Amino acid sequence: MKNGKRAIVLAGMFILAAAGISQAIVIHSENPLPGEVIPAVSDYQTTGAEMVGMSVTVFFTAAPSETVLWAATGVDSGAASGAGGDWSLSESGDTFGNPWTLIYQGGKGLLSGFRLDGFAAPDAAQVGVMFDRTFDGNFGTPDSFRGRDFEYLGAEPPFDTFVRYESSVAVGAAPAVGDEFRYLNVAFLYLPGFDDEFTTIPPQPGGLDGDNLRTFSFFQDTNNPIVPEPFTLVLLAGGAVLTLRRRKAAY
Rank of each mutant, 00 (worst) to 15 (best):
V26F: 07
E91N: 06
G207C: 06
S168N: 12
D149C: 02
R246H: 09
I25N: 14
F219T: 00
G140E: 11
T57I: 15
P202R: 06
G210D: 10
F14V: 01
G210H: 11
S167V: 02
G48P: 01
N138Q: 08
P158A: 11
G154A: 14
S168Q: 15
D221G: 00
L116E: 05
V129T: 14
T141F: 00
G154C: 10
A173H: 14
A174Y: 06
A173K: 01
V68D: 13
F181V: 02
A240P: 03
A62W: 04
G97R: 15
A174Q: 15
Y44E: 06
A120S: 07
Y183A: 05
A176Y: 01
F114H: 01
V171I: 10
L116I: 09
V68L: 13
G20S: 11
L111T: 11
F96G: 07
P34L: 12
E180L: 11
G48F: 00
F159L: 14
P202I: 03
F145M: 03
G82H: 01
F119L: 06
G206I: 03
T47K: 01
M1Q: 05
A173Q: 09
A155D: 15
F198T: 11
S65R: 04
S22I: 12
Q204R: 12
V75H: 15
R247W: 00
F114D: 01
N212W: 08
H28K: 13
R247L: 03
G53T: 07
E36G: 07
M1H: 14
L184W: 07
G193A: 11
A18F: 09
F194M: 10
A18R: 11
R164T: 15
F219G: 00
A7L: 15
W70A: 00
D76C: 15
R245K: 09
L102I: 13
P158N: 11
G97L: 05
K248S: 09
G106K: 09
V58K: 02
K108V: 10
I38A: 00
R115G: 06
Q45L: 13
T232L: 08
E180V: 04
P228H: 10
G154H: 08
A173I: 09
T161Q: 09
G172M: 02
T95W: 04
L213S: 14
N185E: 10
S90V: 08
